[in-house]
Nucleic acid binder design. Structure first.
Lengths: 201, 201
DNA sequence: ATATTGATTGAATGTTTATTCAATGCAAAA
DNA sequence: TTTTGCATTGAATAAACATTCAATCAATAT
């Protein structure tokens, strides 16, 4: 043998993680086309050559992030739905988790926003487009079901459930965007203000 | 002399307008770096050479749009503020105008979103950055003043007025984004849902 | 008719950026 | 201490793209 297999694996994971973390931030702020490999290289301190050792292309980095972001968000939504809670509690939990997440780590809002970026643009890798086309709507459906549950329970306002879900994620995206722009300088609003759009008094 | 001066002026204005309209749509969807001059050329049917006859560079097109967007939005905000109306009426008018505008013309939401795009990105022309830095906050201040007025009048909830303004524009941006993604497929929510975040019952 | 002036084109040029590659470094096993 | 296999580098190459330019067109005033 040569070098310790385990160590190599660890190094590999570390490097990939560094690249992905940095690329997420850059893609969020500048978009896929607006982010140069040299920037990722400079910000991570990893040479361009090494970046291409771990990823086939800039687009592959992007697609990897999209896959990760979508999966994270969908899993969280489906987990939430499963909880043995009232709809009102689920909605409160969702908003609370998101707002706190946005305040704490830029990664949380970046994950939200990069999906939006991918959804809006035509010039993204075919694979990323495919993931968005098939998986992005899941969270809308989950949230719509939770709103429906809440309407039966009497806690949620009686507008079309899917439209409310769309409005919720619109708002969340707006906040993620704001966070991406102003960073620490922007404190998320109190969740009760947002809740007043959806819940009966 | 040569050609009719007036006709030439008209042609010039028409071409510039075509270029700007198309570029606005493309910049909104793909960003500055993600939009190629060849795309603007193809979509307008105007040759690349002619685009450069009317604009110094791609960046100048972008900066022109930013200037236009900011001015349009700020003027509308300041006009609204001047009206002899209650704060509640002003807020209703603002939301109504925006939501209807978003539904009717993609240009309205694009104008909103391109500013956000410029605000978030570091790689934009210095001049555009300058405009954003100095002019973008105006609408927040105007709206905060309107919320303050409403708090005195008793119609608006008692949260920090500037934070409410930030939340309002966050939400508006989220909707503009949604519209940019889904186009005709997305109908704006009823303004009363949004109003319930800001107004007392 | 033709001279003039701006509109218009698209191929040629230059710049920026992604990607490749040959060479070197480094930890562990033999 | 030599060999092995992956990590790592940065300069070389290639691709994509913005920008320029020399030439042509079209309307009108003379």
């Amino acid at each position: 043998m040569s070098r310790n297999k385990v160590l190599n694996e660890k190094i590999k994971d570390e490097r990939r993680e560094q690249i992905l973390t940095t690329a997420l931030r850059l893609f969020t702020k500048q978009g896929l086309a607006g982010t140069r490999i040299t920037e990722i290289s400079a910000k991570t301190g990893i040479s361009q050559g090494l970046i291409y050792h771990y990823f086939r292309s800039k687009e592959e980095i992007f697609t990897t992030l999209i896959r990760e972001a979508i999966e994270k968000i969908n899993t969280a939504a489906l987990e939430l739905e499963k909880q043995p809670l009232t709809a009102k509690e689920k909605i409160q939990l969702a908003l609370d988790g998101l707002l706190k997440g946005f305040d704490k780590k830029s990664e949380t809002s970046d994950f939200y926003f990069i999906i939006t970026h991918a959804a809006i643009s035509e010039n993204i890798p075919a694979e990323a487009k495919e993931i968005i086309a098939t998986q992005n709507e899941i969270k809308y459906h989950v949230m719509a079901r939770i709103f429906s549950q809440g309407q039966k329970e009497g806690s949620v306002k009686n507008h079309n459930a899917y439209e409310m879900a769309a409005l919720l994620f619109s708002t969340i995206n707006g906040l993620a965007l704001h966070k991406a722009i102003y960073g620490k300088g922007y404190k998320m609003p109190n969740k009760n203000i947002l809740l007043s759009m959806f819940l009966n008094d």
